[in-house]
Nucleic acid binder design. Sequence first.
RNA 1: GGGGACGUAGCUCAGUUGGUUAGAGCGCUGCCCUGUCACGGCAGAGGUCGCGGGUUCGAGCCCCGUCGUCCCCGCCA
Length: 599
Amino acid sequence: MQRTHRCGELRVDQDGQDVVLMGWVNRRRDHGNLIFLDLRDRTGITQVVMDKEISGEAHAKAEAARSEYVVAVKGKVRRRDAGLENPNMATGAIEVVAKELLLLNEAKTPPFSPAEDAIANEEVRLKYRYLDLRREQMQYNFALRHKVARAIREYLSENGFLEIETPFMTRSTPEGARDYLVPSRVHPGDFYALPQSPQIFKQILMISGFDRYFQIARCFRDEDLRADRQPEFTQIDLEMTFPRQETVFRTVEGFLTAAFKTAGIQLEGPFLQMTYDDAIRKYGIDKPDMRLPAMVEFTDDLDPALRETLKIEQKLPILGFIIPKAGGLSGTERKKLLSEVRAGFGESGLDLLDTERLKTSEAFAPLAATITQKLEATPEDLVVVVTPKLGTPEMWNFDRQWIYKRVGALRLQLAQKFADKHKLFEQTGTANDFKFLWVTDFPMYEWNEEAKTWDAAHHPFTSPHEDDIKSGALFNDKGSVRALAYDVVLNGTELGSGSIRIHRQDVQAEIFRSLGMSDEEAKQRFGFFLDALEYGTPPHGGIALGLDRIVMILAGATSLREVIAFPKTAKAIDLMVDAPSAATEQQMKELHLKIAARS
RNA sequence: GGGGACGUAGCUCAGUUGGUUAGAGCGCUGCCCUGUCACGGCAGAGGUCGCGGGUUCGAGCCCCGUCGUCCCCGCCA
């Protein structure tokens, strides 16, 4: 028997045709002498009717059929009579009248039903991933993922990019995350590292004259997981020679527009652009969620006398923001929220004002109008103003950014709290759901308090701004050096990160030195790369974007596990195959490994 | 490494102040049913209350520990 159609394909046009469908039993409805089987494959569901009077044999087999049995049906497409159509199904205007039914395979009663809307807990879903993946939503997610990846491949290919593979078994790269290591059998005691990104290889491909490279590449980082972080993930990695930042931006906007188009979303380019400093000042974070209004600074709106009255620190910033639509709180809710937020501030010296206090406090009366107006707040919105209390920690005079970041974090936390209730992030299926942003001019260095060193904020191959090299800031004032580094941000999620690279060997060596790396160490770790830079390296730059994150947001999911077929748990375990697992003694011996202690 | 939430039938969950025999819906099994599409009706099976210890006359409920899943901070460009 040969399948002629998929389960989601038949329409009234095929009325009267003989067809063969194969698929899973989604549901069975037994009416005695009449049995309905809903047959499912990834294209959809078709109702099959077994009538005892038409085919007693098929009917008898249908009596034995159960959920998730795999069956083949030979029969005739029949337009349903008036009143019997099901408008909720794409195939609801027809049904297939079975002449012959084959049970191709039985199925144990599944622990949860792929046909149900209610979904089981993740532990069960991950253990029986093959059942979970049969669910319509998951089938949709992976079809979407395929389409997005394909659109990106096509766009980049058409724009002169070559897809080139780079090794999985390589050596430590300079991203700064922990490496997954692979022991070498041939070289006792030596290890390959799985790539955290193809960074060095793609730069060498530029030196090799490939001009434009891309790869949809798996990357590995042994760090703790989050909803949007898996130990292995997929990057759309690209690099080009002779670029300006804008060249990279337009390329990314191009392929994202193509990718979103396949998902039915028409994006408007170019994306908004903002410096890192602005992002911190207006949103308190380097990956602003532009779906929510920015913070507003009221520092200059309070004169010293008023600050004194209100017991607010004289010099430090006063920041406010609104959470749209979340204003209608009861007295009890308001009190609870206030005390929660205050508890969250702890010893930080921050305090909070809200709409109610703004209205009722006499001292604030002159300000209330200004605040409401500057925030463009309506009575529906929750208004929050954060003030540093008198006698705040001294460090604040040196690290004002901390206040912006803390208030920015509160903004996100409150938005999250009210998101569901007020549908703050509900998708409408238009470009409005997706707020893209380029963040530019990231700092070159980052102070590592623990090690008391300056680290590369992006990675050590990132080019600093020309001006900051000339001014000598590289060594005098590392905190002020800007990098030619940029992030692309979508709805508060960092989608990707890139930079214009250093292409001169002398500059690269200088940067290693400025990071406190001795020439010997640089040579030992990156000698091959410093060598390569000396053989005619063109100016180059690029970016890498998280494919999983793009698909997650497009699918309206909140966890990468929804768009990775076989993901790992928060403890990096694969519940289906039960990995990681112990190696056999023989394997350990061959790899020259011994377990020191198993705690 | 730290904080929080959860863990009761195959699944989703309820279980009061610690009290007798731990419940519901779905699913499952059997029987009935010719127009259902979350079919319906009747009957039935199904429990290591995550695990270990403690308090108590008595623990699903209280205490301690532990394991697992999820979320967050640290960490991760």
